[in-house]
């Protein structure tokens, strides 16, 4: 169990689509000393921006489902590959790196932390 005075920080990234249509998932549950940095990474993402300006889905591009938990606060967003820039891209790369460092390899792909994998 997590100590009650420290909010749980957990991020899950799911990539679907692409020509191959393969589903890939990466997770991060950073320990307490790293949490402040992770909270910043999560909060800088534009979770609440309306996606009215989002382009229509493009054939064979990736789609990203990103879910973050900060204590009792759950948030999620669907981000098309063409919109995965800036803080979104940083967060995805950090989650992939976290899993790679924790396990010594990326269990989903056996590859590194580039967000386009």
């Amino acid at each position: 169990m997590e100590p009650t005075d420290q909010p749980v920080v957990s991020v899950t990234v799911v990539r679907t689509g692409g020509f191959a249509g393969l589903r890939r998932e990466w997770n991060a549950q950073p320990p307490e000393p790293q949490r402040e940095r992770w909270v910043m990474l999560i909060r800088q993402c534009p979770w609440d921006e309306p996606d009215a300006a989002a382009p229509a889905p493009a054939p064979d591009r990736f789609t990203w489902h990103i879910q973050a938990q900060l204590g009792a606060d759950d948030r999620s967003a669907d981000v098309p590959e063409t919109q995965l820039h800036g803080p979104w891209r940083d967060l995805v790369a950090e989650v992939q790196s976290f899993e790679q460092e924790r396990t010594g390899h990326d269990p989903e792909s056996g590859t590194g932390s580039h967000p386009d994998r």
């Binding site: 191959a20 054939p59 792909s109 590859t111 590194g112 580039h114």
Partner: peptide, 23 residues
């Protein structure tokens, strides 16, 4: 891109990644 596991038609051109080498 780098280790890009995809190929797509973007409406103007075909774009090919190199793949990650593992998958």
């Amino acid at each position: 891109s780098q280790d890009y596991d995809n190929a797509f038609w973007n409406g103007q051109r075909m774009v090919f990644g190199d793949g990650d080498g593992d998958v």
